[in-house]
Design a protein around this nucleic acid. Structure first.
Length: 854
DNA sequence: AACTCCCGCCATTGG
DNA sequence: CCAATGGCGGGAGTT
């Protein structure tokens, strides 16, 4: 390494530069005009860079070149292009081996840079680390699949909503410039968005599992994760444009102390540029600028593939079956965090976890709950070692026929079948997805709802329950289910209930291609925001008005509102009707998720009246489908009783991850789960197996995330929670209503389930209006077709997951308490519940803030 | 001055 | 202990 690693600048420049014969010309050009140079560069890109290919060739003339060589010539993006030029987009054999040393040498760059590139490529599964110093090249073969999954996850994470919120906050901030306010506002926004959010996690593809054990521990590395998150942002945002600042805010997510935040922000932005540069070289995004009143902000626009039909379809299916994975393969990942003895722990990112580990241990003793890892071991083994082959086979097979579920029964006959088969059964559920052009109209509707719900189920609940809750998502074609690990931070309840920004911000933004021309004025559009009546803040109102006034076309803006409301109401009614009709407990969960997930696209269609109809219809269809599915499922197992408790006990392994990941799970593991969970009842509902390691959670209390804990979340998390598998048994209509209410679809009886809701929440969530409120910006792109409307956020989003102390505890209990036997942990949890909530919060926050560690 | 973002120090990790 | 990794932020080039 020494030699290669860090050539000094001077030396580097002087001695060896990856210049090609054309380089001289280039240099001249660049000297003449940077713009020209850039353009030139751009042009070169696609074809394939000349320089890229033979970097090692000539050396430049020392000093001059040094001066002349623009910084851009060393950009990560260019480097990445060069790198990409060396490999085919669609390699036939997956065997393309990449040796970092070679690459570094050939491209003539410091190793460090290669890592940067590899990390983001890895996040897209274009490469996978096979061993030390070695990567395997996959090219774009898995790209679509990955993107689809990322999109899915992004939706689950509600990044779209988060972005909206953040934008909103930023706007507010602009208006009233109280420094303090500003900070708070942003922080709050993030907070709101984040709480309940899972932290960063890495998504893996079945085919691309970690080959080297060592890799596991590092999966949570920020660049990789950030990259995925960043991509998700694009995939979920309606106009596929993401401004740098918003992205950074979301990515920061952790803590928000003012000063630190600032620095963090800067750092994050730097990273984003790094990532963006490689994404640009992959032609997935392009740099643009969004212009609003305040001026122009750097942003990036997605220019990559838009649709991922297969996946979407599959997603729905997958989600239905999402299952919580107990211990699973996480082991490797976790190992770094907590050694079996717990003595050793070194966290890359979350030093604070150490403390947790200790606590956990203590807790364990107390609880003396189940064995830490028998299961886990088995699973891990399967997934890591033994299974690969099988997995591969499955994957291959799956890919070949998505439609068909026949999966090689291999070892886990029944189990596997169950998980996978659903696909076949479900077909009805997942109607062919139509291009989800938001504007297009009806079709999109179908898919959206389906997808979302599932997401919620796996992503949300878990997070709340325990710091790390693995969830398995059976993947249809992918070949394998994915396990998602949620970061503990997700748990943290949002501290302050911030009134949601009710005010609508109407903004017009314009995109400027980097070329610079701004869009014609005509394009300017405003995003209609629904004013939140709930929000009484004068300031917001003011702003609103002012905005409206300034706005060129207020009428437009307003338009959406009525529609939204109407549609929402209708939907609500429909849902209710359906719900009533079905009494199955299982169903309970469904409706809510759906409702929650109604997307902007779903709701707001330009179409107006027609839109509503479509929505209704689609909804109906969906419901019907669900019913069918439910029935079929129910047939299989009449009693949905969850074995959760059992599982939980077993699961206790210490699998704590710093971050969550999506990890492919072996069939065996699936089987295992199945057995445990016995989630016969609905394919859809995932069986959650909890394992919280010892309460990884800081605060012993809630963290315990045992099955019991689930109860807690549900109420709070309402939407997501609802879908939760818990079907234990209480599918009482009340719950349904509750959920719906939370969603805002139904106007609830006063406070239905008032208990649970926290003040803030109630205000935000409950009020239908607030729900509807949308805040967003409309981006107009010069070239793009008309403006797009903003996504409406039905739910306020906050997933009130954790909920505030108040609500969570008791009420939930009553509602959700599952009859199922509680594990010891559960019991504990229950008792300590309330206090716990709060307690938890603090520690978690601290984690990020104080990176002190050994 | 604001954007970009390269460079490389230095902490982690794994072996 | 060493080498591989990769977080991170100073500060330089661009706009």
């Amino acid at each position: 390494m020494g030699p290669l690693s860090t050539p000094k600048k001077g030396i580097e420049a002087g001695s060896v530069d990856p210049w090609t014969p054309t380089s001289n010309l280039k240099i001249l050009i660049s000297a003449a005009s940077p713009e020209i140079r850039n353009r030139e560069k751009e042009l070169c890109l696609d074809p394939e860079d000349r320089d890229a290919l033979d970097p090692t060739l000539d050396s430049e003339n020392g000093e001059e070149s040094e001066k002349m060589i623009s910084r851009k010539d060393k950009s990560l993006g260019l480097l990445c292009r060069k790198f990409l030029a060396r490999y085919p987009d669609y390699p036939k054999s997956a065997l393309n081996d990449i040796c970092l040393d070679d690459v570094a040498t050939e491209l003539n760059v410091e190793r460090r840079r290669i890592y940067d590139i590899m990390n983001v490529l890895e996040s897209l599964h274009m490469v996978s680390r096979s061993a030390k110093n070695r990567y395997s090249w996959h090219g774009r073969t898995k790209l679509e699949e990955t993107l689809a999954i990322l999109k899915q996850v992004g939706e689950e994470q509600r990044y779209g909503q988060q972005m909206q919120q953040i934008r909103q906050r930023l706007l507010e901030k602009e208006f009233e410039c109280d420094g303090e306010e500003k900070e708070n506002a942003v922080a709050a926004a993030v907070e709101d968005c984040e709480h309940g959010q899972k932290e960063l996690y890495f998504v893996e593809l079945p085919g691309v599992e970690f080959k080297a054990a060592s890799v596991n521990s590092r999966k949570d590395k920020s660049l990789r994760v950030m990259s995925q998150k960043f991509v998700m942002l694009f995939l979920v945002s309606n106009p596929r444009v993401v401004s740098l600042d918003v992205a950074a805010k979301i990515l920061i997510g952790e803590d928000h102390s003012a000063d630190q935040d600032k620095n963090k922000f800067k750092t994050k932005v730097r990273r984003l540029y790094d990532i963006a540069n490689v994404l640009r070289s992959l032609k997935l995004i392009e740099k643009v600028h969004v212009t609003e009143e305040r001026g122009r902000k750097p942003a990036f626009e997605w220019v990559g593939p838009e649709e991922f039909p297969q996946i979407q379809k599959s997603m729905a299916e997958c989600r239905k079956k999402s299952v919580l994975q107990p211990c699973a393969s996480v082991e490797n990942c976790a190992k770094n965090l907590f050694s079996s003895t717990a003595t050793k722990r070194s966290f890359t990112r979350h030093p604070s976890l150490i403390k947790l580990a200790k606590k956990i241990q203590d807790d364990r003793r107390k609880i003396n709950s189940a064995p830490s890892s028998p299961v886990k071991c088995a699973l891990s083994d399967c997934s890591n070692t033994a299974v690969p082959n099988k997995m591969a086979q499955l994957a291959a097979i799956c890919k070949l026929e998505l439609a068909q579920e026949s999966i090689p029964a291999g070892n886990p006959p029944a189990a596997a079948e169950r998980l996978w088969s659903p696909t076949s059964t479900d077909p009805p559920t997942a109607p062919p997805l139509v291009p989800q052009d938001p504007k297009a109209g009806a079709p999109p509707v179908t898919h959206t709802p389906l997808t979302r719900p599932t997401a919620g189920s796996f992503a949300y609940i878990p997070s709340q329950c325990s710091p790390l809750i693995p969830v398995i998502l059976p993947q249809q074609h992918g070949g394998g289910p994915y396990a998602v690990y949620v970061h503990p931070s997700a748990l943290r309840p949002n501290p302050q209930a911030r009134p949601q920004p009710t005010s609508l911000a109407v903004r017009s933004m314009t995109f400027e291609e980097k070329t610079g021309h701004s869009p014609p004025g005509g394009y300017a559009s405003k995003s209609p925001l629904v004013p939140a009546m709930a929000d009484g803040s004068p300031s917001s109102l003011k702003r609103l008005f002012s905005d409206a006034a300034s706005d060129s076309s207020p009428s437009k803006a307003k338009k959406p509102d009525p529609n939204c409301k109407d549609s929402s109401t209708k939907l609500g009614n429909i849902l209710q009707a359906h719900l009533k009709s079905r009494r199955g407990g299982c169903l309970t969960s469904r409706p809510s998720p759906r409702a929650l997930h109604l997307d902007p696209e779903f709701l707001n269609t330009p179409g107006g009246a027609s839109t509503n109809q479509t929505l209704d219809q689609s909804l109906e269809n969906l419901l019907d489908k669900d019913d069918r599915a439910a029935n079929s499922d129910s047939e299989a197992g009449s009693t949905p009783v969850r074995t959760v408790p059992l599982i939980s006990g077993q699961i206790h392994s210490e699998t704590l991850l710093p971050a969550g990941y999506l990890i492919p799970i072996s069939q065996q593991s699936l089987n295992y789960k199945e057995g445990c969970g016995g989630e016969t009842s609905k394919a859809q509902t995932p069986t959650y197996i909890y394992q919280t390691p010892t309460a990884a959670a800081t605060p012993p209390q809630a963290q315990e995330a045992t099955p019991t804990s689930l109860c807690l979340h549900k109420p709070t998390a309402s939407p997501h929670a609802a879908q939760h598998p818990h079907r234990l048994h209480s599918p009482s209509p009340a719950i349904l209503n509750f959920t719906l209410q939370n969603l805002g679809l139904i106007s609830g009886p006063g406070n239905a389930t008032p208990t649970q809701q926290t003040p803030e929440r109630s205000s935000t969530v409950l009020s239908p209006i607030s729900t509807l409120q949308q805040r967003g910006l409309v981006f107009i792109k010069p070239g793009s077709p008309a403006t797009i409307q903003q996504p409406v956020t039905l739910i306020s989003v906050q997933q009130p997951l954790m909920s505030t102390p108040k609500g969570a505890a008791l009420p939930q209990h009553s509602f959700f308490h599952t009859p199922v036997s509680l594990s010891p942990l559960a019991a504990m949890v229950t008792s300590s519940r309330q206090p716990a909530t709060r307690t938890i919060y603090v520690p978690q926050r601290k984690l990020d803030v104080h990176p002190e560690d050994s």
